[in-house]
Design a protein around this nucleic acid. Structure first.
Lengths: 234, 234
DNA sequence: ACAAAAGTGTTCAAAATACACCCATGT
DNA sequence: ACATGGGTGTATTTTGAACACTTTTGT
């Protein structure tokens, strides 16, 4: 009934939703499409999947091409299959979202792609269904980060509690009580307090923390409500 | 640089992880593969994606072919892309998990596929990477059902609280306190109490409930810990 | 009358929240 | 010395877990 040989074959691509945080806002990295059609239009970073390459490694390759970075936090978001989503030819796209430290990126910028960071709240028009893809990625990021400690991935190796709090505030567009925020994050035991302080952003200075990688990988599944439930239930 | 015409095209399939509940155990519906190679081996229900058909509609078609049912609860699980996952030819598979009322299914059984229900704890050997796919589906079901009211989909339109509790107990392999379970589920306001009772399973009889569909679709995002956190954190 | 399962109530502990207060330091 | 933001303490409320108790009904 279902013979392989009789079946239709389709193009297969990955698209990456790359999030960053500049200390103020949650940002998305997009590029100018380098080929026709829609050359010069804003687009997610993506590429076709090669023979003998899984989608994960294709996404890793695409991310590395653009940023020079390896081992980024990356997660499969969704597979987009609408037959008309790509107006050139039917292309099935697996979307991955990635979290990167925006500082590390800046040193390795690859200008061939004419990449640009946009605030997540003021995105330009994107080609195809990329706007909808980004929308889903934002939702998933918020969902996941409410339950699992993952926003660290957007910060430098060393960060302060006030920085981390600002990041959460940017992601959720709401304010957090600093006392409760501190306690909640420290209760995960995932953070190690360092001896030095960041003195740039305040007179008193705020202690730096790092993620304890051992505990992090073990405790990633911790199911903490990082975000007050009032937010999640609208 | 990336011209569509030079790219490789691939086979695309959907595979469905179909969960049911017989009152005792969580079950999985599998079929005997009807074509070579591996004809006669146990396999998830699946099929190739046709031209002009999204993966969602392909999965819906496959489910309907097997069960005769429409509008089942269905959700994209993950896209499996390992180049060697299908030993015949590289095939990308988009997995969907579906929840069905096992009673409704029984009336429409399609014997062409030689389908069979297996307890989720005693699965037979499955072809390709289907065992891993099912493993992921189980995990996701548990994850999601811990946060969202969705296991209703496995029960008949009318069900009792003790039935619902047994279902949760089967899914999580643990016992729940009936008092706390009742209160928690009723606090969602998603259930309407009916006037009649199920008198088969107890002398006193247990009231039937139905899902209030209006509130259900609105309140699906409710983020309740249906399952004690001790379970989730292992 | 009693067993069995449904359903309710009560207590205790843990958590989330709100908010007041103290601390360190550059100006 | 005082303004600023970092950090801690505490009272109150809400939620969760455990378990005892009452209800209904078939035998």
């Amino acid at each position: 009934m279902q013979h392989y040989s009789q079946q239709k074959r389709f193009l297969f691509a990955v698209d990456c939703i790359i999030f960053g945080y500049d200390g103020q806002e949650l940002k998305l990295l997009v590029i100018k499409r380098s080929f026709e059609p829609f050359k010069g239009k804003w687009s997610l970073v993506g590429g076709f999947i090669n023979d003998n390459e899984s989608a994960e490694s294709a996404a890793g390759r695409v991310l590395n091409d653009l940023t020079g970075l390896d081992g980024l936090y990356m997660e499969q978001l969704h597979c987009f299959t609408d037959p008309n989503r790509d107006s050139v030819e039917r292309t099935i796209s697996i979307a991955y979202f990635a979290l990167i430290d925006i500082q590390k990126y800046n040193q390795q910028i690859d200008e061939d792609y004419h990449p640009a960071w946009f605030s997540i709240n003021q995105l330009p028009e994107l080609i195809f269904d990329h706007t909808a893809i980004v929308e889903m990625a934002k939702e998933k990021l918020r969902y996941k980060a409410a339950l699992h400690p993952l926003l660290f991935e957007l910060l430098p190796d060393k960060f302060t509690m006030p920085q981390l709090q600002s990041l959460y505030e940017a992601v959720y567009n709401m304010e957090f009580d600093k006392g409760n925020f501190n306690r909640k994050l420290l209760s995960t035991k995932l953070l190690d307090k360092l001896e030095d302080k960041d003195k740039l952003n305040s007179k008193k200075g705020a202690f730096y923390y790092t993620v304890n990688l051992k505990k992090y990988s073990a405790g990633f599944k911790t199911f903490l409500n990082f975000v007050p439930s009032q937010y999640i239930n609208k």
